[in-house]
Design a protein around this nucleic acid. Structure first.
Length: 814
DNA sequence: TAATCGATCTTTTTT
DNA sequence: AGATCGATTA
């Protein structure tokens, strides 16, 4: 508010301010800047403030600033926070590396030899493509090859590069990679790796273009630089012209993407690669209490080859992290749930808190995060939290876009974007059955590739017609071409909301299920599952075309009738996709935007949930927590084989240590660690030993509860039940863990006495949706069932009650 | 050619 | 426990 320094800079400490002001209007402007920012040192604040500062104080055009992150979430957060300081920051380009690459290629598609409507293949698509190139190879092997190709691209290695040997020396690999690239080029699409690699190649071969980019982006910033790979380093190098101000931020202790080609080398050697680099260290941690930081450091200290830094906890002392030894993973889930439940229900009254910031009354669900090593581990926690009605949110689960029906629908859209998309074509051409089997398909593809530049889909269909196909196949192809053409018309400029013609499907003639223009139908269609008609409703924008495709192609009908039990869910999912499409304009450009959003950022679903339920527990993988913080964090599955994973050693083990470090330093106030004696793996229950990291951890900053396993801890004697150690603080009480949560009298019966219900039977209720019979009891009025609905609600019903609102739809064998 | 069954593996982490 | 692959059948 006064003097030379504007007030938004006042909240910064010395180093932070130095980092923000660096490269001001002096000649130092050309000096690159490396910010080594420890966990919780206010890194994001520095970046966002710096962006605002450049605009405000240096008069920089926001459009000439490029800020690159690694996750979409981080990009969004950065944009949001920068805008809060100065609204003009919204015009700066803040994207992930991959999203930037896609943007670059979209406007230079011709230079890259891509189809103008190119689509981005995900890992799965890449595997499918490989499958068509090298047939009769088990999927697993294809996956391995696809992974190697992806790795090669991370290292900026082309099929003819001598250094490719470092990825895999086998000549077959070189051959497969070559053919993969050739095929991808013919199709005109790209994979993830291309989003980085191709822009570099273009910029190198076109100095004029590179110069234009240098003029456009005067400032380039990179967040989480420790996780950049070689290709990304190359891209950065190409983007950095002689006048470009380069600023990268990172922490070598938080490098956790080696498996994806990340090179810590990039950050370690940055000063050598870019001469004149100034280095600023941010070593004051504002997030966690001292013991948490000590614990995290004590583990990562076992690593060699670190830059090394000393993080100071500015918040001082707080609660000791708790290490809980638990019998098995079910108890682990129960422990977490109980811990969370209690903290929310009762205010902290243990007088332990010396710092006033810990005594802030009852916790919120959103204060909590449960961290795990692998996605599969989320399931147990979900079940338990659902059971206890504790709201939660799973971050980064891609489940939605991995569903078969969704991938099918997306394949239709992809084919609309790029008619040469072989992978998409193969996926849906015979779904529903159009009499085109593998043989026919191969013939069609061969003809299509042999023919001179296919004039799009019609060209392909044309070639297909020249083949001697069965009558059924010929008719199928023709119908296919028909609805694709119609969908294309819907996207043509000037076309407005034509309804999808009819609900396709052999035995549901007539337009009775035709889509209507009801604005924004938010909920999946529901009704009596006995009606097999699939009702997909189009709202506005792109959803009209999407719905038309899904219905006209017969996909809706296919999925609803194919899967007796989940058919309705599938329709619901398709409806959700249609709804998502409604946000985009009904045009080819709108479609491109929609596809790109889906391909690059699959977290869309989670965002919606966060908005609708802001107060919920976060379930998240350790990798996904990068850049996040929570008041209370539970680190789960600290067992050998889980975390760290199996026989990790050397550099891989060091990476796991850093992962531990990242996880632990997410915690602001409280940190809990869980280790189970038994764990279910591959469907078997296996005894485990505590994680190596628990041994390496500084025991003086740990409070241990539960049954300490034999041989753990240097001083303590093995086997001594630490009963006294619970000290009343152990929030987990075995006695009510196994007590029935609902009404009394429910037993282990499998079948109700009147034979109407079996445990596990699936039901559908008009208000509650889907559910399953959880328990059966016999009462004087007759059998009573308890139904647990998928939405978490539990309700009891008399067995004989089964009206319109409530129907049995099948049996789930448990 | 489609659908179903059983045997046989597997399981990181993500743009 | 779940996916995937191969073989067998309608």
């Amino acid at each position: 508010m006064s003097g030379a320094i504007p007030n938004y800079l006042d909240v910064l400490n010395g180093e932070q301010r130095e980092a923000v002001l660096h490269g001001g209007n002096s000649e130092a402007g050309t000096h690159p800047l490396l910010i080594l920012a420890g966990a919780g040192s206010g890194k994001t604040r520095v970046i966002t403030t710096k962006i605002a500062y450049l605009i405000r104080e240096q008069g920089m055009d926001p459009r000439s600033i490029l800020a690159v992150t690694f996750t979409n979430k981080a990009a969004r957060e950065m944009a949001e926070r920068a805008r809060l300081i100065d609204p003009r920051a919204g015009d700066a380009m803040m994207r992930t590396f991959h999203s930037f690459g896609a943007w670059f290629l979209r406007r230079n598609a011709d230079l890259a030899g891509l189809s103008s409507g190119f689509v981005i293949y995900d890992d799965d698509d890449a595997v499918s493509l490989l499958g068509t190139i090298i047939p009769d190879v088990p999927r697993q092997e294809l996956k391995a090859t696809a992974a190697l190709i992806s790795r090669a691209k991370d290292y900026f290695l082309s099929p003819n590069d001598p250094e490719l040997d470092q990825i895999d020396y086998r000549p077959e690999f070189r051959k497969d990679y070559t053919r993969y690239e050739e095929r991808l080029a013919k199709i005109g699409n790209v994979d993830f790796g291309d989003l980085i690699k191709k822009p570099v190649e273009i910029l190198r071969s076109r100095p004029d273009l590179a110069r234009r980019f240098h003029e456009r982006f005067r400032v380039v910033m990179v967040d989480e630089y420790q996780d950049s790979n070689i290709a990304q380093f190359r891209l950065l190098s190409e983007l950095a012209g002689p006048e470009t101000y380069l600023c990268v931020v990172g922490d070598d202790d938080q490098s956790i993407y080696r498996f994806r080609g990340a090179e810590v080398k990039n950050i370690l050697e940055f000063p050598e690669r870019f001469s004149g680099t100034d280095i600023i260290r941010l070593e004051r941690n504002y997030r966690s209490f001292t013991p948490i930081l000590k614990l995290a450091s004590s583990v990562v200290d076992h690593n060699t080859g670190r830059l090394g830094k000393t993080l100071r906890a500015e918040r001082g002392n707080g609660k000791l992290p708790t290490l809980a030894f638990l019998p098995d993973q079910d108890e682990e889930a129960a422990f977490c749930a109980e811990l969370i439940d209690r903290s929310v229900r009762m205010p902290e009254k243990n007088g332990r808190a010396k710092d006033s910031r810990t005594r802030d009354g009852p916790a919120m669900y959103s204060d909590w995060a449960i961290l795990y090593r692998t996605n599969a581990q989320s399931l147990g926690f979900e079940t338990e939290l659902l059971r206890r009605r504790i709201p939660y949110q799973v971050v980064g689960s891609l489940k939605f876009y991995e569903r078969e029906e969704i991938k099918d629908a997306l394949a239709l859209l992809a084919l609309l974007m790029n008619p040469r998309d072989e992978v998409a074509f193969r996926r849906i051409i015979n779904k529903p059955a159009r009499g085109i089997g593998e043989k026919t398909l191969d013939a069609i593809m061969e003809a299509a590739y042999a023919a001179p530049p296919a004039s799009g889909l019609s060209g392909l269909i044309g070639t297909a017609n020249n083949l001697s196909l069965s009558a059924k196949a010929a008719a199928g192809i023709k119908a296919f071409a028909g609805f694709m053409e119609k969908a294309r018309t819907l996207l043509a400029p000037g076309t407005k909301g034509i309804k999808p013609a009819k609900a396709a499907g052999p035995e549901s003639p007539g337009p009775k299920n035709s889509a209507q223009e009801s604005p924004g139908p938010k909920n999946p269609a529901r009704g009596n599952p006995a009606d097999s008609g699939a009702a997909i409703r189009a709202g506005e924008g792109l959803s009209i075309c999407t719905a038309a495709l899904i219905v006209d192609s017969g996909l809706a009908e296919y999925h609803s009738s194919h899967d007796e039990i989940n058919g309705y869910q599938r329709i619901g999912n398709l409806q959700e996709l249609v709804n998502a499409a409604s946000l985009y304009p009904s045009s080819m450009e709108g479609l491109a935007e929609f596809m790109e959003h889906i391909e690059l950022d699959r977290s869309l679903e989670t965002d919606q949930k966060t908005e609708s339920h802001p107060n919920s527990v976060t379930l998240i993988t350790l990798h996904n927590t990068k850049g996040l913080e929570f008041k209370r964090v539970i680190l789960t599955g600290l067992e050998q084989g889980i975390f760290p994973r199996d026989d990790k050693e050397g550099d891989d083990l060091e990476e796991e240590r850093r992962l531990f470090y990242v996880g632990a330093t997410r915690a602001m106030d409280e940190l809990y660690l869980c280790s189970c004696a038994l764990r279910r793996m591959y469907g078997r229950t296996i005894p485990t030993t505590p994680s190596l990291f628990l041994r390496e951890a500084d025991q003086t900053v740990l409070r241990v509860i539960g049954d300490v396993p034999p041989g753990f801890g240097s001083g303590r004697r093995a086997g001594s039940a630490v009963g006294g150690g619970y000290g009343g603080a152990y929030p987990y009480n075995r006695s009510f863990e196994h007590a029935p949560s609902g009404g009394a009298g429910f037993g282990p019966e499998q079948v109700s006495s009147d034979g109407r219900w079996k445990r596990g039977d699936r039901v559908f209720h008009d208000d509650q949706g889907y559910g399953a019979v959880a328990d059966i009891a016999e009462e004087e009025d007759g059998p009573v069932i308890r139904v647990r609905f998928d939405n978490g609600q539990e309700t009891r019903f008399l067995s004989r009650y089964q009206g319109r609102a409530f129907t049995k739809i099948g049996t789930d064998h448990v």
